[in-house]
Design a protein around this nucleic acid. Structure first.
Lengths: 223, 223
DNA sequence: CGCAAACATGAATACTGGTTCATGTTTCGA
DNA sequence: TCGAAACATGAACCAGTATTCATGTTTGCG
């Protein structure tokens, strides 16, 4: 009997506290990729269950048992598709990054005016986090569970933001100013308002938040 | 003008009588308060060690053994002064809140102009988090370890911020606008820039960050 | 069909780490 | 000075849980 990936392939020697420097740029998890429609569905189910359970309970209180029972499979099944609990978490962070960027890009597509794009992007972001509170919390927790993924998430986002601001400044659509710091500051605004919605469960309508924030972003608070 | 530096001064003793930080089910902070100078010193040592260890390793990887060995005491000693691992964490979050509010209140004291106070407060905050990266990370992690403390931290802060903005608006020092949303947005800017320093280890000088952010806060990005 | 390979199971393993406790040591008021 | 309370110790306890494995079951394909 050939046992797959038993001794020669991937070192799963996680004994003790190995530093375990995960590669941040592994876009393609080569572990236990399903080769069948059935396996594909099972993997998806586990991932979706993990999103719900980890989002609600947090990484440490979400046990593999919780996740698999939520997914309706046995515990061992988890390890057919994921090598470790941390891996499924990382994959969720990656997915969140892709989803958010895609959502905002779509919402701002075709808007020539940067200020208007800023407004549309903020609205899209807030609507997204309200619709996906689990994913939002997961990204926050990544700071402690998977710092590389956390950094990748924000650095990638900031880089795109920054070039957008540079282009807008060159086109005379916004005033001059350090695009790097501006990108981080504007991300901070969006994040903070999103947190008000998801974490502190504010019932303020998104449109009101967007309007107020837009006024601040465009005009500042000078009298 | 009376700035909201209300209870930000008392360094100790505040743990036993916090209005809302008690957990609904476990809510008895029956901490073994020391009754001797010797006990007082030991308790302080454990708290300081916990700040270092938890700040560096994170809540879950920071074991009681780590903390006590860092503090130079036996494991059991921990439970003379703290009923649980979570309690020492909560106390650190409380302390962080008090320290930050106190620091900012002091830095903005006597500044009559709100915009100038905004600048000074931001600078003080960034300098504080650069000097106390451990405490900064601890507050972030509180979202998962002690959500009540996390909420208290930000809600308290936002409340003070908000009334400050209301007063400034009434005095004609800033333009009109929803003070609640503005407070959260401005907090988000500070937090994001602080994170750039502490988490992403940016070597940008604080003064440059402050200047850029101030320009955004005061004037916006409209051309 | 028939038979590998893929998939699934869930009990067993291995180990971590928070908390307790029986036993000493130090402090301090009377 | 002395005894009780406060303080300190660290080994042991024990619950939880990530991961493995021997054993079935299903699927795809010749």
């Amino acid at each position: 009997m050939r046992k797959p990936a038993d001794e020669a392939d991937m070192p799963i020697r996680a004994a003790g506290k190995t530093p375990k420097s995960g590669h941040p740029k592994t876009g393609h998890p080569k572990t236990g990729q399903p080769k069948t429609a059935r396996g594909e569905a099972t993997r998806r189910g586990i991932l979706a269950a993990a999103e719900r359970v980890i989002g609600e309970k947090g990484y440490n209180d979400a046990s593999i048992g919780h996740i698999t029972s939520e997914a309706g499979v046995a515990q061992g099944t988890f390890y057919i598709y994921f090598t470790t609990k941390e891996q499924v978490f990382s994959e969720l962070v990656l997915e969140m990054g892709r989803l958010v960027r895609h959502t905002i890009a779509e919402a701002t597509q075709g808007i020539g005016n940067r200020l208007e794009a800023e407004k549309a992007g903020l609205r899209a972001f807030l609507e997204f986090v309200r619709a996906h509170p689990d994913l939002y919390r997961i990204v926050q927790e990544a700071l402690f569970v998977d710092p590389d993924a956390y950094e990748a998430y924000y650095v990638t986002f900031a880089a795109g933001y920054r070039t957008g601001l540079e282009d807008a400044e060159a086109a005379g659509q916004i005033s001059a100013g350090d695009p790097e710091t501006r990108a981080w500051a504007l991300m901070g605004i969006a994040r903070s308002l999103g947190e008000q919605l998801v974490v502190f469960k504010s019932d303020k309508p998104i449109e009101a938040l967007v309007d107020s924030a837009y006024d601040l972003i465009a005009n500042g608070i000078k009298p």
